[in-house]
C-alpha cells in the first residue's frame, strides 16, 4: 500500500472541511428581517392594553380600569362618542389629570373611539384589519394613523395619572417613542396583517 504523505493528508482534510462549510452555508439561508405582518405584532400589545381598549369599545359605554369594568355612573357613549346629552365626557374629564379627584384628562376633548373602531373581542389580526380599513378607521392613511398615535388623547396613555383610590394607572408595555417607531416601521413595510 503506498504511503500517503501527512502533508498531503492535512491539506486534503482542510479542503474537505472548507467544502463542507460552503455546502452547509448554501443549505442554511441567512436570517430574514421580520415581515411587515410580524411588525404589527410589536404594536399589538399596546393596542390591546386597557388604556387603549377602554375607549375602543364596541359597546354603548366606555370602560375603566385595568380590569376594564363598565364605566360607573351609567356613563354612555352618546350619538357622537362624546357622551350623552348633558352628560358629555367633558362634564367630568378635563384638560389634564386631576390629582385631587383622580379623574383622568388630556389636552384634547375626552371621547370614545367611534364604534367602527371598536376592538373589543377582536383578535390581533382583526384589530390590524380594522385599523387599516379606511371604511372603519375614519378614512385614515398610514401617515394619518401615525398622526393619531401622537395626539394628546393617545399620549395620555403614557401619563395616565392616579386612580381616585390612589394607585397609578398602568401604561402600555412599549414606550410611546418605541410604539410610534414600531408603527411607522410597520406602515413603511406595507402594513400587512397577521
Amino acid at each position: 500500500m503506498p504511503r500517503i504523505s501527512w502533508k498531503r493528508g492535512f491539506v486534503a482534510a482542510v479542503a474537505l472541511s472548507v467544502l463542507a462549510a460552503i455546502a452547509a452555508r448554501a443549505q442554511t439561508p441567512p436570517a430574514k428581517p421580520p415581515s411587515d405582518a410580524a411588525l404589527f405584532l410589536r404594536i399589538a400589545p399596546v393596542l390591546q392594553h386597557p388604556r387603549c381598549m377602554n375607549c375602543h369599545t364596541r359597546a354603548d359605554y366606555p370602560r375603566q380600569g385595568d380590569d376594564q369594568h363598565r364605566h360607573i355612573m351609567n356613563i354612555r357613549r352618546g350619538s357622537d362618542g362624546h357622551g350623552a346629552a348633558a352628560m358629555r365626557c367633558m362634564t367630568c374629564h378635563g384638560r389634564s389629570n386631576n390629582g385631587a379627584s383622580g379623574v383622568p384628562g388630556a389636552d384634547e376633548d375626552w371621547h370614545l373611539a367611534p364604534l367602527s373602531m371598536g376592538w373589543e373581542g377582536l383578535g390581533v389580526g382583526d384589530i390590524c384589519r380594522n385599523l387599516t380599513d379606511p371604511t372603519k378607521n375614519g378614512g385614515r392613511t398610514g401617515r394619518q394613523i401615525v398622526d393619531h398615535l401622537q395626539t394628546q388623547l393617545v399620549r395620555w396613555a403614557w401619563s395616565p395619572g392616579q386612580t381616585p383610590q390612589g394607585p397609578l394607572r398602568t401604561s402600555p408595555p412599549l414606550s410611546h417613542t418605541d410604539f410610534v417607531a414600531a408603527a411607522q416601521a410597520w406602515i413603511a413595510a406595507g402594513a400587512s396583517c397577521p
Binding site: 355612573m73 367633558m90 362634564t91 367630568c92 378635563g94 386631576n98 379627584s101
Partner: peptide, 27 residues
C-alpha cells in the same frame, strides 16, 4: 364627593354642565 361622581357640584360653563369639584380655576 370631590371626585366628579355624585353631581352635587354641577354648574354650567357656557351652558354646558360640568362638575366643579374637578374643574381647576385655570380651566
Amino acid at each position: 364627593c370631590g371626585a366628579a361622581l355624585c353631581g352635587a357640584c354641577t354648574v354650567h360653563l357656557d351652558g354646558e354642565p360640568v362638575r366643579s369639584c374637578s374643574l381647576p380655576l385655570d380651566a
